[in-house]
Write a protein that binds this DNA or RNA. Structure first.
Lengths: 190, 190
DNA sequence: CGGGCCTTTGACTGGTTTCAACTTCTGTGG
DNA sequence: CCACAGAAGTTGAAACCAGTCAAAGGCCCG
């Protein structure tokens, strides 16, 4: 919980009492590795905040392959934003990459929270702004770099993440095949 | 202005008096076709809201080609979010595709606005949420579809936009060359 | 009516995928 | 604690999607 408090403190100013009240709107969960939090075809009922561990979002492409589009590690939110906002079926899955501790909230609770604690409008405004800025940069990278450059960039920018996550998920996230990642790594080794 | 009022009404509830106060934080501008609103290397000082017309954001890639990453039409915001938030130099340009009427606001004014009218925190929270949801879907499309499928999808989803915008900008936005777009169109014709 | 920008066409190239076979790692039950 | 099965990673050959380059045609706007 201390980790969530520190996270909130980076965006808004609240006292202990208010923090306790805010926290009561969330539910804490322990998730096993590979456990599903949301599956394709289900209504997207919740948002997930990672206190510890790592989640990923993926979809099944026309060849039946899992295509990872997003990772969430400590202090990041993850959900299918559109499906959550409109409470409709999602065509994504969300699954734990590692054993994780998370907070969840559903739309009704979140609206309640925002009504009772307007400071959280500011918090979520800043969170979405940050998330949107990140995806603007990500889209630029997708346009700008070859697959090989994407891997190089990613592995120098987040070397600790490369250690933490299996290669085939890295390949999937960067948008190419595990075989090609192997080839890139071989080339870099020599 | 009526168009901006209607836009705000979709997200928040305000009266005429409050709307007038809010509006006073923005500046209205008339922009000529091809006019620059922001150029590569400049600090990103403002956000732009399109009342009428169309803007685009692009960067210059290593080959010196303009790579369009975003269009903004009526009722959309556009800026380099990260550079704006941190008031740093942007490596994007923003330019008018058509003669446009826009609202602009800078960071200091926006903070003032948010302080005096907290309801605007809610507005911007929803705007960023919507923008983030859109870019989540966009990233999925980039992973899921071939270039040809991207064009097909785009041209059936937004046929009016295809009419409105020159082909080479469509190609740039979808991430391929004008030559390849020509080839796709030829194939579809036959 | 002319010039320059936009679009089209075609030949060639290369980055990336696909497929199949093989090796190495990992975790689970006996 | 070991054995073994399935999962993850590697390698190489063949195929393909899309880019590059060059040249010609069309069209808009001054």
């Amino acid at each position: 919980m201390e980790t969530f408090r520190q996270h909130l403190d980076k965006f808004i100013t609240i006292n202990d009492e208010e923090f306790a009240l805010i926290l009561s709107f969330f539910q804490m969960l322990e998730i096993k590795k590979k456990q599903d939090l949301m599956v394709d075809g289900e209504v997207c009922k919740s948002m997930f905040f990672v206190l510890k561990g790592c989640l990923r979002k993926f979809f099944i492409n026309e060849k039946g392959i899992e295509q990872t589009t997003e990772f969430a590690i400590e202090n990041w939110w993850i959900t299918d934003t559109f499906a959550y906002e409109h409470q409709i079926k999602s065509d994504f899955c969300i699954q734990a990459v590692e054993r994780s501790t998370i907070l969840t909230i559903d739309l009704q609770m979140q609206e309640e929270l925002l009504k009772k604690h307007p400071v959280m409008e500011r918090y979520f405004r800043m969170i979405y702004q940050r998330a949107y800025a990140a995806s603007e940069r990500r889209i630029r990278y997708l346009y700008e770099m070859s697959r090989e450059e994407l891997y190089l960039h990613f592995s120098t920018q987040y070397p600790w993440f490369i250690q933490r996550i299996p290669q085939y998920l890295i390949a999937s996230f960067l948008g190419f095949t595990p075989e090609y990642l192997s080839e890139i790594r071989a080339k870099l080794r020599s």
